[in-house]
Design a protein around this nucleic acid. Structure first.
Lengths: 149, 149
DNA sequence: TATATTATTTGCAAAATGCAAGTATTACTT
DNA sequence: AAGTAATACTTGCATTTTGCAAATAATATA
């Protein structure tokens, strides 16, 4: 009976640090950590609304609204009114936003591959498969991991 | 050639949300997310100084200093001058701080076990072993994962 | 003894946060 | 169809968090 929290706490801390440093390295302070999460999620979803992205990130919608505004001002994100419901805004990355997101992606991936390269191919595959497995399990688990409301 | 970042990004986000919610649940807003990380790390290390904890968490020392002050005021953390070097403060949890840390630990672990319970025992073991493996690899990798300076 | 180095704290100004209340638009209700 | 409710988002405001620069205090070095 391990203390599983320890493992995840360390993992998420280390990944957080790596992510943050990569952000700074490849786009020189242009985006904060939360902002990089927002870019990531906008890119991942299919024509998401504000609420969908904020919900996925577990962010307060008012904080999110302001962060998006900042990203729009910086020219990284575009807000398009929903065609059939003008209350909603569809979020998308501008080409510049996409390029930054790709940059972060490349940098973080390179670092992770570097970490993984110290393992055998078998271990590497196992690790990757395990994390997929756990992510899926977490997604299915309704009792947690769902942003409040 | 997977996009490994995706996996880790999702994992760390989900764990972050879980952690945050557990904090609120079991100690009713008494500690913020960063503060729970601080409690965690003080508990984990052996008579750590301010810099040791701040360093491990990759936090700016001035921000850290103020957060610790808050935790001291709340009665969760104790600062003891280092016996042979009065510049340093040794950090420790008070009994109340420890009890809160244990509470968070129990709650988060229960949630994680719940997620893991959807898997077969083999999968569960593999996942846990994989994360250990990755954590170790990350710790060894000097090119990243080390807080600035 | 004077100077440098280390550990931590404060000043300050900027950024981030979240509740309450606002606006605008669409959905119901009778 | 008019009025009410609900939804999606924004803004006001007060608090908290953040990090650089500079200050303080204690130890190490020259």
């Amino acid at each position: 009976m391990d203390n599983v929290r320890n493992l995840f706490q360390l993992l998420s801390r280390n990944f957080g640090l790596l992510n943050e440093q990569c952000c700074e390295n490849c786009c020189g302070q242009e985006v904060s950590n939360v902002q990089s999460h927002i870019l990531y999620e906008i890119n991942r979803q299919h024509h998401p609304s504000m609420q969908e992205v904020a919900g996925a990130l577990g962010m307060d919608i008012t904080t999110f609204s302001r962060q998006v505004k900042t990203l729009v001002d910086k020219g990284f994100v575009k807000k398009t009114p929903h065609p059939s419901d003008n209350r909603m805004n569809i979020l998308s990355l501008t080409s510049e936003g996409l390029s930054i997101e790709n940059n972060i992606n490349l940098t973080v991936n390179a670092q992770l591959q570097h970490v993984l390269s110290t393992m055998s191919e078998f271990e590497r595959d196992t690790v990757i498969r395990s994390i997929k497995l756990f992510n899926d399990a977490m997604q299915k688990s309704v009792s947690c991991c769902t942003p409040p409301q």
